[in-house]
């Protein structure tokens, strides 16, 4: 019965599933995070719609793009291994620590790629908290063996974009839709937070978001393109520089996983500083 719903029900309506997944009313705790906006408001680097627009655009081009790529990768992994993972999970009872070809090990590998792209401990913590909440809700909304497996594979909470990609796959969405949801999340949370913190006109702020719509599409496309590039370019030529990285005869480079190492890693040093500043501030409204 559950199986039927997974394959037939939600999977037949991915667009509607995407709306549900991206909706801020999804009960997964997303509303409690400002993505650095609260600290930026406190420091006075966001004072009005102009600053906010630049904040959102920069956030989308960095953290948003990285989240989109990780979500797309997670969705792809979840979709590819759906049945195979379910079988493996049932047989192994899921708990075994594994090499890269065991499904739980691959999820941990992808999670480690998210870790490596999140230098700030406060951001890693916020990401894992949101990921854990999303997995918990998604397992009840869109039950699937992949979500069960993921919850067991990374019990301390998987990074949010990975949870999002896996939840999206379980809801029937494709990697592009997952990436779009992640990119959308990366800007809507801070935008809403800024409305509340600065008392901005919500219509003005929604206009900013509407202006970002093409950039959201671009980010989701770039995220998916990075997945395809990896597949084609691996191993050793993930960057367009030609032969590179073999000078030391270092064979370790080839055991890094299925093309994930070259996913975007766009950093935002100011967001890192904001996240840590926010974390040590006791007078705050938002968790991050």
């Amino acid at each position: 019965m559950q199986n039927d719903r997974r394959k037939g029900g939600m999977r037949g309506s991915p667009d509607a599933a995407l709306l549900l997944l991206a909706d801020s009313r999804l009960p997964a705790g997303g509303h409690a995070h400002s993505g650095g906006a609260e600290e930026a408001v406190r420091l006075g680097t966001i004072t009005g719609p102009e600053d906010l627009a630049r904040f959102l655009r920069g956030r989308l081009a960095t953290a948003g793009l990285v989240s989109a790529a990780l979500a797309a990768a997670a969705c792809e992994l979840a979709s590819a291994g759906h049945d195979e993972q379910a079988a493996a999970h049932d047989e192994q009872t899921g708990g075994r620590d594994g090499q890269s070809d065991d499904p739980a090990g691959r999820w941990r590998q992808l999670d480690a790629e998210a870790d490596a792209r999140t230098a700030s401990p406060a951001q890693r913590e916020a990401s894992r908290v949101q990921g854990r909440l999303l997995i918990r809700s998604a397992r009840r909304i869109w039950p699937s063996p992949v979500l069960d497996l993921l919850a067991k594979a990374v019990p301390n909470g998987v990074h949010h974009p990975i949870a999002l990609g896996a939840a999206a796959a379980s809801a029937g969405c494709d990697p592009y839709q997952s990436a779009l949801a992640a990119a959308y999340n990366a800007v809507t949370g801070p935008a809403t937070a800024a409305v509340r913190l600065l008392g901005l006109d919500p219509v003005t702020v929604h206009r900013l978001l509407a202006d970002l719509a093409p950039a959201l599409n671009d980010a989701a496309h770039a995220a998916c393109a990075s997945l395809i590039d990896d597949v084609v370019m691996e191993p050793g030529a993930a960057d367009p520089f030609g032969p590179y990285g073999t000078a030391n005869g270092d064979a370790k480079g080839s055991t890094r996983g299925p093309g994930w190492p070259a996913l975007p890693g766009h950093a935002a040093p100011a967001l890192d500083l904001l996240a840590e500043g926010h974390h040590s501030n006791t007078m705050k409204l938002f968790v991050s």
Binding site: A40, T45, F55, R57, G58, R59, T62, A268, P269, A270
Partner: peptide, 9 residues
Amino acid sequence: EVEGSPAVY
């Protein structure tokens, strides 16, 4: 997209 963004530099 990153120039002058309070989120980036």
